[in-house]
Every structure is written in C-alpha cells, then in structure tokens.
Design a protein around this nucleic acid. Structure first.
Length: 292
DNA sequence: TCATTAATCGGCATTACCTC
DNA sequence: GAGGTAATGCCGATTAATGA
C-alpha cells in the first residue's frame, strides 16, 4: 500500500491522491511511466522528485521517513509493508494513578514469539528487546502504554506507532479493546470477563501470596491482548484497503492464531472476583463499564 | 476518576492552477 | 496579468473516548 501512497508528499492531500488514482496512476512506477500527471506542471515536477526520495527510503527500509510524513489517519498504511518488523504491545500496571504506579507486566508479540516481562523478574530486559522493532501496534497506546513505558524506564520510543483505538473508531468499532474484539467475533474463552481492574487484583494477589496461578493468569490475559491486536490490525487494515481501489490486490491474509504459552486459571479468577465483590461489590459494578 | 489524545470543525493564510 | 477557485496547512477550541 505504501507504493500506492502519494499523500505523504507535502502538498498532496487525499483529493489529489484520489485524482491520481482515478487517472490510472495507482503506484509510484506509474508516475515515471506517465507523460503527464493530472496536476499542474510544478506540482508534477515536485511529485516526481519526492517519489525518487520515497523509493530510496523504501529500499532502505526507513519507516521513519514515511511515518513522519503520513497524516495521522493514514498511518495504518505502514502496516502492509512493515508488518514483519511489528511488535504488538500491551502493559499492565498496579492501578490508574500515573505518579505512583508501576508496570507489573508487559506482553510483547511479534507475530511469531510471545514474550512476557514481569516486574521483579525480567522487566529490565524490555527496553533492549523493544528497540529491535520498527513499528508498534497498541490499543490506546498513544495515551496510555507508550507514555507510561517512557516514564517508567526513562526512555524515548521512536518507533512508528499505530494506535488501534483511533483506527477502529474510524471504522465504527468502539467500546474499548474488549468491545472491539466482541464486535469482531473474538472469543476469549476462559479469559472472558477479565479486565484491567482484575489484572490489578491478580497482581496484588501474586505480591501478597506469591501465587503463581495469579501471575500466570495475569500473563495469559496480557498475552491474549497482544495476540488479539494482531487480528484486529489485520482486520482494520483490510477494511481500510477496501476503501481504496486496491481492495483486490492489497488485502492481507490473517495469520493463524498462536498458542499462548500461559494458562488462565478460571477457578482462581472467579475466587478473586467473589472476594473482591465481598469486600465492597465494586468489581461487580466495574464489569458493567466499558474499557478493559 | 482523570489525564491524554485524536478527531472534528471553523477560520484564515498561502499556494497553485485555471479561465478570461 | 488579473481575478476566481480549489486545495492544503496551520491554529485553536471543542468533543469524545480510552486506559487499569
């Protein structure tokens, strides 16, 4: 899809891009083959010169060149070309307070391997590992995960980033990550019903009792989020491609779902829910609210 | 609950193109 | 060349949605 993109060029918006496509200039190589472009002569010269830079940047795999130039609502186009260098990312924390909170676990999935980083164990490995990827896919990561990680580790994350929250909202999918998954028919099975608040309770249980069942359930939940991000981005990408003239040629095949190497202990989850309910019924209320 | 973000909208300036 | 039109970018204000 990147080779069909023109709106990363300064001065070219969606309308001029659509005009080019309509004139049969659907890819960069069509520009060099075309004698004339459906724009003025100065704009045509500018587009030709910019595409030379774009082709070189693509050959060199410089995703940053494209992510800086693409409008925010068109960042999804990066995925088709750079998906093999993508990391799906989700964090869990000790709560909502930004100042005193800590990251408890981070799940990182790259389409092949699922890694889980646990506070007090291997969390310090995360900054090195994430630096190997060029494109991040998150849900609400622009507001939550990425700023939280940068503050927690005191690092800057320069990768290109697709936040599915806004992409999916533009396609009519709202209601938080779990809501979007439900609308797309994703079944979480034994992890169904677990949300971010229960993730906090699971971590508290692990810290208090050392329960490995609590930790493994938390890791399973965390990993499930990242695996589902892969499904969601493929679906969203194909829906966006359907809005272009390239629906037949650029749609992606959704990959097989990987096996999650952590087990959720559903009986344990129910026990925590009941315990929380008995201590004030606030968990029962929260499960009716949107979000994760 | 609250900080954060993107989307949206309107207004304005700039630039390029087209028509006369 | 002048004037009109279209497209784009930028800015600020507002709104809606989300995370654990």
């Amino acid at each position: 899809m990147i080779e069909n993109t023109f709106c990363h060029i300064n001065g070219v918006g969606k309308k001029i891009e659509a005009r080019l496509w309509h004139a049969g200039i659907c890819a960069w190589n069509d520009v060099s083959a075309a004698r004339e472009l459906p724009v003025g002569p100065s704009a045509a010269a500018w587009i030709r010169s910019e595409l030379a830079v774009s082709e070189k940047s693509l050959q060199e795999g410089r995703i940053g060149y494209f992510s800086r130039r693409l409008p925010l609502d068109q960042q999804w186009r990066l995925f088709g070309t750079f998906r093999t260098r993508t990391a799906y990312l989700d964090i869990e924390t000790t709560g909502l307070c930004r100042d005193s909170n800590r990251i408890t676990t981070i799940a990182l999935y790259d389409g092949t391997h699922i890694r889980c980083y646990v506070n007090g164990q291997n969390l310090h490995d995360f900054p090195d590992d994430i630096s190997r990827y060029d494109l991040l896919v998150t849900y609400n990561g622009k507001s939550f995960d990425i700023p939280f990680i940068e503050r927690f580790f005191n690092i800057r994350m320069f990768q290109a980033h697709i936040d599915l929250r806004h992409l999916l909202a533009g396609l009519g999918f709202n209601g938080g990550l779990k809501g979007c998954e439900k609308q797309m028919g994703i079944d979480r099975k034994e992890l169904d019903g677990i949300d971010g608040y229960l993730a906090v309770l699971l971590w508290q249980e692990y810290e208090k009792t050392g329960s490995l069942s609590a930790l493994e359930t938390l890791m399973a939940y965390n990993a499930e989020d990242t695996v589902n991000l892969e499904y969601l981005i493929h679906t969203a990408y194909n829906l966006k491609v359907n809005q272009t003239p390239f629906a037949q040629t650029k749609a992606l095949v959704r990959p097989d779902r990987p096996r999650i190497p952590f087990a959720a202990h559903s009986e344990f989850v129910h026990r925590i829910m009941e315990k929380s309910f008995a201590h004030g019924a606030h968990y029962q209320r929260r499960t009716d609210e949107p979000g994760t």
